[in-house]
């Protein structure tokens, strides 16, 4: 059975609304992740993905609920959880290299200057930026800044990687190479990853599970898609896999229509936010295999948008 390395337990987040009262970005959100699992989150802009990530990072606190990591409730940020920020968040007065070195020296305060520099340079080389290592962020392109952000997160050997659209500003070629690189590192080091993305193909290539979030305010985790592709996939063969298009269509259908009308979809039905259904769009029959902890339901493979299996089985917590 899966362990719950990260367990998001009933968190909600609300902000004061302009005209008094408050808007609830999301409410009663539950999600658990196993050690070494790669989870991608997909949802429309503004649904609260970054907010969830900030809570996981310890930068933001939920209005209610808790997040438990490795048996302990999160109380603040930790060096064990590295964040790749959506906005890069590089310190503009430091060069690319010293931005990374700052992280390295925070992680290992006892290292000598040259050791810090060497470790930072290693991370910079990993993202292919050695030519630009001594440039300031203002002299870097958006994609280069994003790569520095990735290098900074990887340089501190975190246990958990929290990535907020880490590859969004990159050209297709660089994105491919970096995705390969990050995937390799994550598998080698047994990284547990929480990644936000808008790119369906990226999610299918990288993630073990893809979390689908409905539109805010009051966003929910509609379902969790178990990636049917073999772990040993490569960039060039993913789209040849028979399960690839069913998964892809399922997700795109969700984004196009179901993410908006999800509340109508579940209206009148028993909905348990603690156990969002785990679907496997490539498996034709329900109940084929209990992948993970949640119930497995049939996906519709994209042919019937709006369809939602009513005879879902419930797992126990």
């Amino acid at each position: 059975m899966q362990d719950r390395y990260i367990s998001i337990e009933g968190i909600s987040r609300s902000y004061p609304a302009p005209g008094g009262g408050k808007t609830t970005v999301f409410d009663d959100l539950w999600l658990s992740m196993a050690r070494g699992e790669f989870v991608a989150v997909i949802g429309h802009s503004g649904c609260g993905k970054t907010t969830v990530l900030n809570i996981l990072a310890g930068l933001d606190a939920p209005s209610s609920g808790v997040v438990i990591v490795d048996g302990k409730a999160i109380e603040g940020p930790s060096l064990d959880r590295a964040v790749i920020f959506q906005s890069h968040a590089l310190l503009p007065w430091k060069t690319a290299l010293s931005n990374v070195a700052y992280a390295v020296s925070s992680r290992w305060p006892k290292l000598s200057r040259s050791e810090i520099e060497a470790k930072a340079m290693e991370a910079i080389r990993l993202v292919g930026l050695e030519q630009a290592a001594h440039r300031k962020p203002s002299q870097l392109s958006g994609g280069m800044k994003q790569r520095v952000g990735i290098a900074r997160a990887l340089s501190i050997d975190p246990k958990i990687l929290l990535m907020d659209e880490p590859f969004s500003a990159l050209d297709a070629l660089t994105r491919g190479t970096l995705q390969d690189e990050v995937r390799k590192i994550c598998i080698e080091t047994g990284q547990t990853v929480f990644m936000i993305t808008h790119d369906v193909d990226e999610a299918i290539y990288l993630a073990d599970k893809i979390v689908l979030m409905t539109n805010g305010p009051g966003a929910r985790i509609a379902e969790i898609v178990a990636n049917p592709l073999p772990k040993a996939r490569t960039r060039n063969d993913v789209h040849r896999h028979p399960a690839y298009y069913p998964v892809r269509n399922h997700i795109i259908d969700f984004l196009v229509s179901r993410s908006k009308s999800f509340d109508e979809e579940i209206a009148g039905k028993a909905w348990d936010p603690r156990h969002p259904p785990l679907v496997n769009p490539s498996i034709p029959e329900p109940s084929v295999a209990a992948i993970g902890k949640g119930p497995v339901t049939q996906g519709q493979g994209g042919d019937k948008p709006g369809f939602f299996p009513a005879n879902r089985m419930r797992g126990t917590p």
Binding site: G58, G76, P77, L79, V83, F85, A89, L91, A103
Partner: peptide
């Protein structure tokens, strides 16, 4: 805020944060 957040995720102490960020 995001620069402060960088320091926070790196668990930089208050004094070091004051001088380096």
């Amino acid at each position: 805020k995001e620069w402060i957040n960088v320091a926070r995720t790196l668990e930089v102490g208050t004094l070091r944060k004051a001088f380096t960020v």
